[in-house]
């Protein structure tokens, strides 16, 4: 019932009062936490971590139907346990924390960039570019969003997109942002060339084997390899395996897959171990006031 009260949708004045009440409760809880001695704070963190982890662990481990009423006539089998319905609201809490954190990020960016700009330190032009981009995109984006709030038809949407603000938004988003993102990604092509030229050297038998494998997989993935190099080899014969795409397929589906599976097992074991340590607060480091 308390959960329903917390998660029920609200609008208008009720929403405003609810948010204000939540902020006041949060401030009161933070003030109370600040008065606790450090040892008590540490135990509170340990307890909260344990309870949070226990919730998700039990929700996953308890079989469907645990502490749930049996299905009614005509209903399918029960697929959840008694904790499953709390997963969504708990998840929203973490999202709200992440949303608030975005504000922190913007504040940090503004703080870091304001000093060079105000004091004309070297690189102040970059800070000016940052503030210009931030303010212009914020204003244009919010203005366009406000215009789109009342749009319900395709014609209305088209009118907004062809307005001055819509054109400016398209210039900033499609013209600048999308193209800049594509440009940075395109740098990878150049870096791959320079990295390959520098790093692929025949220094050992393993390096040679790796290079031959890389050549086969590369040629097997492009039409010039499959069509011109081995395209003349017919399918359905014992020597058809010599076609570069078949060799590439075998490499990817057999040794590569085995290696990927082994890596996944190892990584997942590592994740289980680290997660266990964090859940039980056994992780050592400055988080937990222990000397390294």
């Amino acid at each position: 019932m308390f959960l329903s009260f917390l998660t029920a949708p609200r609008h208008g004045t009720q929403l405003f009062l609810f948010v204000l009440g939540a902020v006041l409760v949060f401030a009161a809880v933070m003030a109370a936490l600040h008065t606790l001695p450090p040892r008590a704070k540490r135990w509170l963190i340990v307890a909260c971590t344990f309870v949070a982890g226990l919730f998700y662990l039990l929700e996953f481990m308890l079989p469907p139907g645990t502490l749930m009423p049996p299905p009614g006539p005509g209903e399918g089998p029960v697929t959840d346990n008694f904790l499953s319905r709390y997963v969504e609201p708990v998840g929203y809490v973490t999202q709200i924390i992440a949303a608030v954190a975005i504000g922190l990020g913007v504040i940090n960016l503004a703080r870091v960039n304001s000093a060079p700009l105000l004091r004309f330190r070297p690189g102040w032009q970059n800070s000016l570019a940052f503030f210009t981009g931030l303010i212009v995109m914020l204003v244009v984006g919010l203005w366009r969003w406000k215009l789109l709030l009342n749009v319900t038809t395709v014609a209305q949407e088209k009118a907004v997109n062809e307005s001055t603000i819509g054109s400016l938004y398209r210039f900033l988003f499609d013209g600048l942002y999308s193209n800049l993102g594509g440009t940075v990604f395109a740098l990878l092509a150049f870096y791959i060339v320079s990295a390959s030229y520098r790093a692929f050297r025949l220094r050992s038998a393993e390096a040679t084997l790796m290079m031959i494998t890389a050549f086969i997989v590369m040629l097997g993935n492009v039409p010039v390899g499959t069509a011109y190099l081995t395209g003349w080899i017919p399918d359905g014969h014992w020597y058809s395996f010599l076609k570069v795409e078949h060799m590439s397929d075998w490499i990817m589906n057999t040794p590569n897959m085995a290696a990927q599976r082994a890596l996944i097992f190892g990584i997942m074991m590592g994740v289980i171990a680290v997660s266990l340590r964090i859940w039980l607060s056994l992780e050592r480091g400055r988080f937990f006031e222990q000397e390294l």
Binding site: L263, I267, M269, A273, E283, R284, G285, L292
Partner: peptide
Amino acid sequence: AEEFYAATAYLSREPIL
């Protein structure tokens, strides 16, 4: 890969890790 998760144990030599 998994050596990444061994890093804190390796660097700190803390018995628990």
